[in-house]
Amino acid sequence: MPKVNFGGQSYDCKDKSVLDCLTAQGVAIPSSCHSGICQTCMLRAVGGNVPPKAQEGLKPTLIDQNYFLACSCYPEEDIEVVLPNDALTRVRATVSSIELLAGDIIGIKIQPSQTFDYRAGQFINFYKDETTSRSYSLASVPALNEDIFLHVRKVPDGLVSNWIFNNLQVNDIVSISMAVGNCFYVPGKPEQDILLIGTGSGLAPLYGIARDALYNKHKGKIRLYHGAYNTAGLYLAEELRKLEEANSNFSYIPCISEGPAVNGFAKGMVLDVALADNPDLAGWRVFLCGNPAMVTSAKTQTFLAGAATRDIFADPF
């Protein structure tokens, strides 16, 4: 009889869904529709396989990380499950380099002390001390980069970013969480066109996602729009232009929203520029990162322009 392991306890679940099995034995799992629709009861399998039926309707990035719906899951083998946010053990890492990328953004490379699984575009929590941490996206690609690469924007009065800017040094040992987040490239549908829109250090995940897609030999168009107030905020421009020269399906469109027009840069808010260039997004895959107001608005605007909800991936910060 298959067992469900949860929170150090083992539960029998003969002919019952994981949700019914756990709730019947007093475990509180949030739930609503009990029909595999509303996704309130989503859990994550960290051991064993869940039947495909339990993942129907989930985004590909969630399926890839073994998330499933407890109400539709009738296990055929023993599985170990956790609540969606309970998989965050900490890892120690050594700072291997620190460089200024733009006026208020620094790039940090770190080397975890143990094997570190992640997807380009996910994020980690970076700890200043036991209780203070902030999330930073991963700009590196596991297959291409030895170190993990983060872009840290200096936030006025930001506890962690100011500490990183003022105190962090090469060879320091720091504490980070495992990588989390659903904004990343999943191989497959290589002909699908991809639109990436980001502001400020929202470039970090997009830089990782674009290079991950190219590494996976993605064939469709990959168009990266990066927005800032002025050219000083558009860091990594040289690397991105090189990437453009080396890959005919990749284009990089830097956008500035303030001041006079500058040759080589699109003028306007990054979302407006991207939508004007690509008014019909039916069939596209879309990645949105950075300023929360931009990301929220972009989710709706790209959906109204034709992108399917399951093809829109967003990370506001």
């Binding site: 529709c33 009990h34 029909s35 509303c38 996704q39 959906f303 909800t309």
Partner: peptide, 22 residues
């Protein structure tokens, strides 16, 4: 958007005579 799309799906499922708990 994502949360809302899931609710819309639950609502349409019900309107189509499908399984629901509302």
């Amino acid at each position: 958007m994502d949360r809302q799309a899931a609710k819309q799906k639950a609502f349409l499922t019900m309107a189509f005579g499908g399984p629901h708990n509302y």
